[in-house]
Design a protein around this nucleic acid. Structure first.
Length: 360
DNA sequence: TATCCGTGGTG
DNA sequence: TCACCAAGGAT
């Protein structure tokens, strides 16, 4: 915001706004599984799952995850393989790697009790400014701002703020603003109400201003400018990567799988053999490449389909094959032959799940 | 600061 | 159909 926070708040009725907003939230909020109790661990899990992920997508994952890891200790003691499997298909897998590490640290350093200290909690892996404010306010009623995309959209309209919300520095300014208007007697409902309003009423496209509980406080509505806000510049176009992948089975029906590196895209997930780093020209070159790289003898191959998968910043184009191979012994932990039953216990990226479906 | 990091829903 | 999007964080 070009102006300072004091100027923005001129003539703004803070207490009336808090009341209108919270009254609406108490009455109209959705019945979500993580709102049934105030267990800091469950609030934390929900907030991590909800990062860049829709509520409807998260709900079934949340139920399964809490059923499998009901307490912080249970998650801390779980194996990486189980934890990653529970996250399979949710995306942004560094979230669960960081959450698992963070929970272990809480078990060790804080006796398994999620710290209510801003400094301590925010120092944990995967816990940034938003998650800090969300967990501390919702679970512990501490008046910290929890500024996400919803909050920036809602407040940019209410205060007619034209700063680019795609820029990192903008979030800090919104945090200053929220610090001034947050309801100290009910920071939990206040923060959740701002996000709920963004999700249900103050939506990105065609917001339902006629239903808005804080319409009378909204400067964008008064100006008829809600459609122009928030200001958000768009990112660069994703790059395209083409390669081939193959589902290899031996005579017994075992399948060769490979674990991806522990950092980068789809870290620690499993996949089928591919020539991602050495795209091949034809079938013979592909067979040769796979044979050498994976140390297998391939008898025959057959194409089973082409797949396109769009990530945030890259698009994969995969030609998928199936083939028979002689199951030579693999001596690295990141590659193994597994039975089809065992296959189900390994976490795969969605695009490789689709390739597996085409194989079956 | 800009880029990397997934997936599925939607107008 | 496809550009945009959804309760961000790490580097």
């Amino acid at each position: 915001m070009k102006e300072n926070v004091q100027q923005i708040l001129d003539h703004f009725h803070i207490e009336q706004f808090q009341h209108d907003l919270i009254h609406w939230f108490v009455k109209e909020q959705r019945d979500l599984p993580w709102r049934k109790e105030k267990d800091p661990y469950k609030i934390w899990v929900s907030e991590v799952m909800l990062q860049q992920t829709r509520v409807d997508t998260v709900i079934p994952y949340f139920y399964k995850f809490i059923e499998k890891f009901p307490t912080l200790d249970a998650l801390a003691e779980a194996e990486e393989k189980e934890v990653l499997k529970a996250w399979e298909g949710l995306g942004y897998y560094s979230r669960i790697r960081n959450l698992h590490a963070a929970v272990k640290e809480v078990k060790e350093k804080y006796d398994g009790c999620v710290p209510a200290s801003k400094e301590q909690f925010s120092s944990l892996k995967g816990v940034g400014p938003y998650t800090t404010g969300a967990v501390l306010s919702i679970a512990y009623d501490i008046p910290e701002p929890a500024v996400d995309g919803n909050v920036m959209r809602v407040l940019s309209r209410i205060f007619y703020i034209t700063d680019d919300i795609a820029k990192g520095s903008t979030r800090k300014k919104f945090e200053q603003l929220v610090s001034c208007i947050i309801a100290h007697d009910n920071p939990s409902d206040f923060n959740q109400a701002l996000m709920e309003l963004g999700a249900l009423i103050c939506t990105p496209k065609s917001p339902s201003c006629f239903l808005c509980p804080v319409q009378r406080h909204c400067r964008a509505f008064a100006e008829g400018a809600e459609g122009k806000l928030p200001v958000k510049t768009k990112g660069k176009a994703p790059k395209h990567v083409s390669f081939r992948a193959i589902v290899l089975a031996d005579k017994k029906g075992s399948i060769l799988i490979e674990k991806r590196p522990n950092s980068g895209l789809l870290a620690n997930l499993w996949q089928f053999p591919n020539d991602e780093h050495a795209p091949t020209a034809d079938d013979q070159a592909f067979i040769k490449e796979i044979s050498e790289r994976y140390g297998v003898v391939i008898r025959s191959v057959q194409q089973i389909g082409t797949f396109q998968h769009v990530f945030s910043h890259v698009v994969w184009h995969i030609e998928a094959y199936k083939g028979e191979a002689i199951g030579l012994t693999v001596d690295v932990p990141t590659r193994k032959w597994v039975t089809i039953e065992e296959l189900a216990s390994y976490a795969f990226p969605v695009v490789y799940q689709k390739i597996w479906q085409a194989y079956e």
